[in-house]
Design a protein around this nucleic acid. Sequence first.
DNA 1: CCGACAAGGTCTACC
DNA 2: TGGTAGACCTTGTCG
Length: 216
Amino acid sequence: MPYKKIKEGLWADYSKKKTNIKKRLSEFKKKGKASNEEIFEELAFCILTANASAKMGIRSIDAIKDKIHTGTAEEISKSIKGKHRFWRIRPAFIYETREYIKEEFGNNIKKMLGSFNDPYELRDFLAANKRIKGIGYKESSHFLRNIGRKGYAILDKHIINCLYEFKVIEENKRPSKRSEYLERETQMKNFSESIEIDIDELDLLLWSRQTGEILK
DNA sequence: CCGACAAGGTCTACC
DNA sequence: TGGTAGACCTTGTCG
């Protein structure tokens, strides 16, 4: 499909969904100003969504909200069984991440996030940290976006698919390392600039085209 | 009804 | 040391 058609198609869709998209983004912004507990819950949500369905993630986080701040990995695991594919390992990830933030930052996740000036250094930190478990580049970007940080590409299966169809990227393959992630992120940014749709809005737009919904 | 396959990736072990 | 299979795991959906 020629570039011009793609741009027109996206804009037609964007005009319809614009209100919902903006609304969702303002919710993300608001979340960023919430308590340490709520922000940690958002991080836990992202740990849960990796290679699980979005609905599974939402359903699961609701089930364990009362357990994730104080419960053991086993307790979290018990609450999530039957609601999530990876009911044994993901609670362990959440637990380990929580204990790390407790040890290093006195349970103050906002302090942790605030200790970086550069947004990409912050993401590198989250993605590369071996004690922040279950969070790679995609989920790190997802998390930061969900707490109102802007400008990151969230390169999941759906977005990669779209970008490939649009010929923005050359391979229909999820990035498996940092350099690939950054490269495709730049390509998506260039595309978003050229069609004049903000990258954060473009992410929600493309995702909604694949799934029919504007979730998180 | 049943087999195949997908579901917002990341971690670990091994070469 | 840098890269890549295999593990994680179950449920819903589609032919």
